[in-house]
């Protein structure tokens, strides 16, 4: 593998994704979970940019990346609304307490 800006960025994408998923699995605070999701999304945005840069379709990938940022911000906002509402209704941000639905 040639060491180039793209490969370094690719490693960042992998590292961030792994870290993000690990964080999703071990974090208990709901708001922090949302942050972990944001980390993965950022990795995806970087990945799209790399893909476009890699084969000269930068315009396309820029458009796509911007859309992703906007859409996932909306998702994060809705998720935060959920977290706030859950905190209001149940008095906790602990994801472990959200386990009434099972079986």
């Amino acid at each position: 593998m040639i060491i180039s800006p793209l490969t370094i960025s690719l490693l960042v994408v992998c590292g961030l994704t792994g870290l993000g998923f690990y964080g999703l699995l071990v974090t208990r605070n709901m708001i922090k979970l949302i942050m972990m999701l944001q980390i993965i999304v950022k990795a995806a945005v970087l990945g799209i940019v790399i893909a476009g840069q890699g084969n000269g379709q930068l315009n396309l990938s820029q458009n796509v990346a911007i859309t992703i940022i906007v859409v996932d911000t909306i998702v994060a906002v809705v998720a935060l609304a959920f977290a706030i509402q859950i905190r209001r209704q149940m008095g906790t941000l602990d994801i472990r307490e959200l386990a009434s639905l099972r079986g």
């Binding site: 999703l24 709901m30 995806a44 796509v64 998720a79 959920f82 977290a83 209704q89």
Partner: peptide, 26 residues
């Protein structure tokens, strides 16, 4: 709320994977 939040988190985690796939195809 619990159902909604779980739905959101799982769905969002899944859709990020789709983005990676789109990146690879691109």
């Amino acid at each position: 709320l619990e159902a909604g939040f779980k739905y959101l988190m799982q769905s969002a985690a899944g859709s990020v994977l789709v983005l990676f796939a789109i990146g690879i195809v691109l």
